[in-house]
């Protein structure tokens, strides 16, 4: 996984518990930050974009909330939107069941990825072998 991340560093959009949301920023700012920093997008524009994406996921109400007050589902969605904010993003979902452990399978993740399909270039799941079935995969997955 480290090798893959290094190869795609310039477009990497990581969704992982290892890269949590910034707790002293509101949700919209966590998302807008990526475009603001890399593209020098004005904060108003970046905020609008973030709010639009939050609406796609039905979590617009969380825009002014901060990380500790989010549910697991909201947290996952926001992390995914943030990853999708990277231009031509190569989204990597690192052990997403750790973020949202209550899910029986990986359909929720697939559905979520579809919502930001227009923003991302690639999406990759990295998880333990024993979680393979939860994704409905039959062939060997990367660990």
């Amino acid at each position: 996984m480290e090798g893959f991340l290094a190869d795609h560093k310039s477009h990497l959009g990581l969704v992982s518990l290892e890269v949590p949301l910034i707790s002293n920023l509101p949700v919209w700012s966590n998302i807008a930050l990526i475009r603001q920093y890399h593209e020098n997008m004005p904060w108003e524009e970046a905020k609008t974009l973030a709010l639009d994406l939050l609406r796609r996921f039905g979590v617009a109400a969380t825009a002014e909330k901060r990380n500790p007050s989010l549910t697991a589902e909201e947290r996952f969605c926001i992390m995914l939107i943030r990853a999708a904010m990277v231009r031509d993003a190569v989204v990597v979902l690192d052990r997403p069941f750790r973020i949202f452990p209550d899910l029986p399978d990986g359909r929720f993740f697939m559905d979520s990825l579809r919502k930001v399909d227009d923003l991302i270039a690639e999406a990759h799941f990295f998880d333990y072998n024993w979680e393979k079935e939860r994704y409905g995969a039959t062939d060997d997955a990367e660990n």
């Binding site: 560093k9 310039s10 990497l12 959009g13 990581l14 290892e18 890269v19 949590p20 949301l21 910034i22 707790s23 002293n24 930050l33 990526i34 920093y37 890399h38 943030r82 990277v86």
Partner: peptide, 25 residues
């Protein structure tokens, strides 16, 4: 305190993984 908390909660990793320079940002 803010920087120490960010370090403990791995938020600095977040910034680095999104190629956000800590010094700049």
């Amino acid at each position: 305190a803010e920087i120490a908390v960010m370090k403990v909660s791995r938020e600095l990793n977040t910034l680095e993984s999104f190629r956000i320079d800590l010094i700049h940002y």
